[in-house]
Design a protein around this nucleic acid. Structure first.
Lengths: 203, 203
DNA sequence: TGCTAAAACAAACAAACGTTTGGTTTTTAT
DNA sequence: ATAAAAACCAAACGTTTGTTTGTTTTAGCA
């Protein structure tokens, strides 16, 4: 008989892994990957730089963990938002509101996705791109469900919508339009003609 | 009488300031501000790191010079593009094609604007934001000229358009749609209704 | 209570960073 | 031809970087 395999002792309850992750998310979101040092993250978590390496093997791995949580959380939030209805436009609107809310206000983790480019983290590049692509697939499905005019390029509609929403981080200011209002406005422009000579008021 | 002010001797003709600037633009565009070192830029220009400081007092100043040239060049290109016509939609279309072409293909300098955030360069932050705002003012005027339906939020239209175009850098691939086609497609979505039940074929 | 592994600290590492200093070459105006 | 300034090189500066190593503290189970 082989010896009974030793079960690894469970993690302590006072361990600060989550604290490190939160601090990393906050810093990466605010200043990007390269501008943030391990020492800054450690200090924000009340630790010393070397201690982080007990939980994460490298700075890039730490970042990857943050990014993964970012995608996971925004993905979950959007799925939950669209669950309530079957109307295609309403589902898209809800998804956009959730998406924009997370990216502009609610989550440091999600905002990291907009702040850091995959090329900033060479070792994790492919993984980051794959994660983001996975998330965008959600919107691909939502746009595919829409009743659009024949010949409308749905990929283009998706790219336009996500681009417009993501870019809002550059002009969004707290106190002005809320993320939800911004999302609604963008969807409305997509849905309705903007050109005056094509506008018709139902008579 | 004061002595006649000495005229500063003009710059030599073989000086490599422009070479440094080009190398810096190429590197900053590809990898951002913090990931690029002065030594890399110098090597690409066939020099040594310290030599750059003869032409630029600091890394941030070098970057600022690149960014300024980026804004200047894309601004000039767009102005030249719209000069040929008075039709508001045509002017916007031409501006968008020029804008997108510069940002996706033509100019390393212009692409730096999309790659580096003002916060990455603290000492130049305010200047960078001002430069970008100045450039966007061009599009503000173009959108203001459009014959849009009453109640359409023109700032939102502008933000949506620029966001959609700028974001294209994340999915644009050479060999697919050209920058010009992308710009046309985005303007078309703005101009025409996407929703099927509002589409009318003239009978 | 005492043992063990988890989780942290303290300190150092080599490498890379932006920048400075001082000297050398090269062009240009006189 | 000469002097002066422009343009660069060579080498080092002090600091910061991500990471490693060895040691200490501490929580949880027997």
């Amino acid at each position: 008989m082989s010896k009974p395999a030793k079960l690894p002792r469970p993690a302590r309850q006072d361990n600060r892994r989550q604290l490190v992750l939160d601090a990393a998310a906050a810093h990466f979101r605010a200043r990007g990957f390269h501008a943030v040092s391990m020492r800054e993250i450690a200090r924000a978590a009340g630790m010393i730089a070397g201690s982080i390496y007990y939980h994460f093997p490298s700075k890039e791995d730490l970042f990857l963990a943050v990014y993964e949580e970012g995608v996971r959380s925004i993905s979950a939030r959007v799925r939950e938002a669209v669950a309530g209805t079957d109307d295609p436009w309403e589902r898209l609107s809800r998804a956009c509101r959730a998406h924009t809310g997370m990216l502009l206000e609610e989550s440091d983790y999600a905002q990291v996705i907009l702040r850091v480019f995959p090329d900033d983290v060479p070792a994790a590049r492919a993984t980051l791109v794959a994660l983001r692509d996975d998330y965008e697939m959600l919107f691909r499905e939502l746009v595919d469900e829409l009743p659009l005019a024949d010949g409308v390029n749905r990929a283009m509609v998706r790219h336009m919508l996500l681009g417009a929403l993501n870019w809002a981080k550059f002009w969004y200011r707290p106190g002005g339009m809320t993320p939800g209002e911004i999302a609604d406005a963008m969807v409305a422009v997509l849905r309705n003609p903007a050109q005056s000579n094509e506008v018709r008021t139902d008579a």
